[in-house]
Design a protein around this nucleic acid. Structure first.
Lengths: 124, 124, 124, 124
DNA sequence: GTGGTCTAGACCACC
DNA sequence: GTGGTCTAGACCACT
């Protein structure tokens, strides 16, 4: 499991940061099917956050089909088909992209300018 | 003054929605220098929100140099030079763009793919 | 009568700015005894402010003995003895100075440092 | 935390009094880095003022970099380097001093007289 | 009329 | 428990 970075001062709530980073690792196949997530208590200790906060993140992951829970055993990465992964990924990207484009258009930015900016900043 | 749209259910606080839309109109020169904003009370009635919520939005606008207020008179659009407008605009765009790019990179999206998507969606 | 400068955006209310500058000119003998102040209407036009605002300033001046009103004629500078002028001046200075000193002490500034600063900035 | 004194009758708004006194304690290192400020509710009770008034003071402190807030946790004194503290202090002193000097000059007071007065009153 | 400040409640998300 | 936001009133000084 790749390292997780949590920020106390960020505007994003901690449970959301946890959710985002883990779901992303699952989509990127960095966590394989049936990989056991750390127990809620272990994770709470490791990240020095409240058990409740971890529980909330794990719950969200389960609700969105990223993991499944075996009572008394723990939580494991779901068996996502490539198609499902692709679908979740594309859906996330397109949803965000459409919103972003709306924003840039409202600021009066040209399509060409945005593409310029992206070329400029993407590799840095 | 172009119409303002506020959503009660949005995650964005109301005062922030007000701030965003008005500052945008100022940057786009839709509101000229010294244009009088509606009075706090008038705006509160019009948008059916509390006086304090409007006040907070107006306050933020003043703190960031978009408007100036004359007690007993009202609030007016600041005299922003083209250079200042440009600077504020670019700063907003670049700040958001960098965050967005980080996000897309973390999802493993290629630069070319993003540009493809933008070309596809920008004109719709 | 020396020129008067009023600022709309200042934190000081306009009537107070008027009062301060005129009372000062009287204390400095720039306006002699029985000098006629402009009429309220004239002053309002000249300074482009409301008649009420001028009235308030003139009222304060009268209340503090700087001018006297002759109904139907106008307002005139009072006959202040040198002693009275001196007393008003010293009282103003000492009152402010004591408050200022308290402030600087609370910021932990040494007596010597303040004197240094004054020597440095007074002539600029 | 040293005691705070608030005056209902002062011309200064309550939130400003709070802001001034706390920012001063931070600049004087009476409150160390990461020191937890009392919660908004606690402070409101203690000073017998509204929650919103405390909030406004805390907000100003955050806007000016004196404290940082962690939602759900509380507000804490920022980690200010000695250089930053010095800069804030000097900026406050010089800003006020320049205004004071202007005032004394407008009253026709000599540099030497002011220094005399300061020597006389500073230690009392 | 205007903005500036303040009160005493309230609901929400987060920890 | 915490801070973030919001409401519906109120009083004040200034124009």
């Amino acid at each position: 499991m790749k390292s997780i970075k949590l920020s106390n001062t960020s505007k994003e709530p901690i449970y959301k940061q946890l959710y985002d980073q883990i779901s992303l690792q699952i989509l990127n196949r960095e966590l394989p099917t049936d990989f056991p997530l750390p127990s809620i208590r272990t994770a709470a200790k490791e990240f020095r956050i409240s058990i409740i906060t971890v529980k909330k993140a794990w719950e969200e992951l389960e609700n969105n089909g990223y993991i499944y829970t075996v009572p008394g055993k723990g939580c494991f990465v779901s068996n996502l088909s490539n198609m499902e992964v692709e679908k979740k990924l594309v859906s996330q990207i397109v949803t965000k992209l459409k919103k972003d484009i709306e924003y840039y258009k409202s600021l009066g930015v040209d399509k060409e300018d945005i593409i310029e900016y992206i070329k400029k900043y993407y590799d840095s």
